[in-house]
């Protein structure tokens, strides 16, 4: 007898709540801004202030997309890396000074954007001025702010399970990583492990390690020149604003021919075939004549 007993089928038919499509995940964006004055003055074709105009609109957009989105801005120059603004520490209470300061936009969300923009800009100006005053103009590597950004992200991701993080690096100086190669690579691998995309907006000369960073972590690497000056807002909002959870559904705009080649530690030439020391893993173009590794001085046989 063919009965109506299809209990199993009935149980399986539930509320088809397609979580992935409908649910919203919040994201924590960390923006790392290179504040080295000589980079922006000499190497970049667009001035820092023009970039900041578009960047602030981009930051407003990030906060507008989801009320639980969080943001942190880090700046780095000769003084080191500093947290310029962070939604986790910024007080959410409005202060009465604003009316006295003549901010005319009446109490709406737009007013909050305005206040936030001004706070970030003034912190940036302060950091640049301080570096100038102390005459600290040396270049620092991006491994510093990246480590700081990753530890902040780690804390928030542990506390709130639906939080995803992503990092945008705005870079202008042309310096190589130099002695911080290991530290920088460590941060890139950690970002890959945590699932944090590293986006790069490069206004200075091309840098291969940033391209590699974006490639490994499913981030976007874009280079900008003078002709892009008026369209910066559009580029920022369409590419860098895509949330990490959405990135697997879209094709991100990024530089496709990433340069993976190895560089000899001694002569700095690009290598296709080289020799790797089995002790310290340094890459050499050819075995030195005295049969000793140039870096770790271990004797080869």
């Amino acid at each position: 007898m063919d009965s109506v007993d299809d209990t199993a089928a009935q149980l399986a038919k539930g509320v088809s709540y397609d979580e992935e499509i409908q649910s919203d995940s919040c994201s924590f964006l960390v923006v790392i801004i290179d504040l080295h004055s000589n980079g922006w003055l000499n190497k970049s074709q667009i001035s820092l202030w023009k970039v900041l105009e578009s960047l602030t609109v981009f930051l407003n957009a990030h906060l507008a997309l989801n009320s639980s989105n969080e943001l942190a801005v880090l700046g780095f120059n000769g003084l080191g890396a500093r947290v310029l603004y962070s939604t986790t520490t910024a007080g959410k209470n409005a202060d009465a000074n604003d009316i006295a300061n003549g901010i005319h936009l009446k109490g709406t969300m737009i007013r909050q954007f305005k206040k936030f923009d001004e706070s970030v800009l003034s912190s940036i100006k302060a950091q640049i001025a301080e570096a100038k005053a102390k005459n600290v103009n040396g270049s620092t590597s991006v491994s510093g702010p990246l480590s700081l950004a990753l530890s902040h992200l780690n804390r928030r991701i542990r506390e709130k399970s639906s939080m995803r993080g992503h990092i945008l690096i705005v870079s202008a100086s042309g310096d190589d990583m130099g002695s911080k190669y290991i530290a920088t690579m460590n941060t890139i691998f950690t970002a890959q492990k945590l699932g944090v995309p590293l986006d790069v907006a490069n206004f200075g000369p091309p840098k291969s390690f940033l391209q590699q960073a974006a490639e490994f972590t499913q981030g976007s690497y874009l280079e900008f020149s003078e002709k892009d000056a008026e369209g910066l807002v559009h580029y920022f909002c369409s590419t860098f604003l895509v949330e990490p959870a959405v990135r697997k559904y879209v094709n991100m705009a990024t530089k496709s021919n990433v340069d993976f080649s190895a560089v000899c530690f001694i002569t700095k030439k690009i290598l296709e075939i080289g020799y790797v020391c089995s002790v310290c893993l340094c890459i050499m173009q050819e075995i030195p004549e005295d049969n000793k590794c140039a870096v770790c001085h271990s004797q080869y046989e």
Partner: peptide
């Protein structure tokens, strides 16, 4: 009204938000 647009923007599914952002400043 900009407020209305902000509220509506927050209600959209994630991919839709990215599409809006892409077209916003075009």
């Amino acid at each position: 009204s900009p407020s209305a647009c902000l509220v509506v923007l927050r209600m959209l599914p994630p991919l839709a938000k990215s599409i809006v952002m892409r077209l916003l400043f075009a």
